[in-house]
Amino acid sequence: MKRIVLAGASGSIGQQTIDVVLHHRDAFTIVAVSVGHNIAALHGIIAQLSDLRMVCVAEQSDAQMLQQTYPSLAFCWGEEGLLQMISSVDHDLFVNALVGFRGLHPTLCAIEHDKDVALANKESLVSGGELVKAALAAHSGRLYPIDSEHSAIFQCLQGNDPKAVRRLIITASGGSFRDRSRKELTDVSVEEALAHPNWKMGGRITIDSATMMNKGFEVIEAHYLFDLPFDQIDVVVHRESVIHSMVEYCDHAIIAQMGTADMRLPIQYALSYPKRLEMKNARPFDFLDYPSLHFAPVCFERYPLLKLAYAVGEKKGNLGAVMNGADECAVELFLQKKIRFLDIEELVEAAVAAADYIEHPTLAELKKSDAWARAFVRARQEGACK
Rank of each mutant, 00 (worst) to 15 (best):
I205T: 15
G129W: 06
P145W: 08
L108A: 09
E123V: 01
I153M: 08
I169C: 01
L108W: 11
R102Q: 13
S148P: 08
E218A: 02
S209T: 12
D116Y: 04
G216S: 00
E221P: 08
D116S: 06
R102I: 14
T206P: 05
K183V: 08
S124T: 13
H196M: 03
S148Y: 08
G159Y: 09
F101T: 03
H196G: 06
L185F: 12
G175A: 10
E184I: 01
L104A: 05
L104N: 03
I220Y: 10
S173H: 11
A138T: 11
G159L: 07
H139W: 06
H105T: 14
G100R: 07
S127Y: 03
D114C: 08
S209M: 08
I111F: 00
L108K: 06
G128Y: 02
N121Y: 04
K183Y: 13
D208Q: 03
L194C: 09
L119R: 01
S124W: 11
E192L: 05
K115Q: 15
A172N: 00
T211H: 00
H139C: 11
T211E: 00
K183H: 14
L157A: 03
G203S: 12
A152S: 02
S127E: 02
G159V: 09
R178F: 03
L131R: 05
R178Y: 12
L119D: 05
M201N: 07
A138V: 02
T186L: 15
A110I: 09
N160Y: 14
V117P: 09
R180Q: 13
C156D: 01
V126L: 12
V219R: 07
D208I: 05
V117S: 00
Y144A: 01
K133F: 11
V117W: 07
G175R: 10
D187P: 03
A137K: 15
R178S: 09
I146S: 06
K115V: 10
E192T: 06
S148N: 07
A210L: 04
G100Q: 10
R167H: 04
H105R: 15
A193H: 12
G216Q: 03
R102E: 13
L143D: 00
I170A: 04
F101H: 01
L168M: 13
K122P: 07
R102P: 05
D114S: 14
R166V: 06
P106G: 00
L108T: 13
I169N: 02
L98E: 02
S124Q: 12
L98Y: 01
S176R: 08
T171P: 00
S189C: 07
G202T: 10
N214I: 08
G159F: 10
Q158C: 09
V117H: 05
R180C: 03
R204Y: 11
H139P: 06
T186D: 14
V126P: 12
V99H: 01
E112L: 02
L108Q: 09
A134E: 15
A138C: 05
T206S: 13
E192S: 13
R178C: 07
Y144V: 02
A210S: 07
C156E: 08
L194M: 14
H113I: 10
S124N: 13
K122Y: 09
E191Y: 04
V132S: 02
E130V: 15
R204M: 12
C109V: 04
C156F: 11
L119G: 03
E184V: 00
F177W: 09
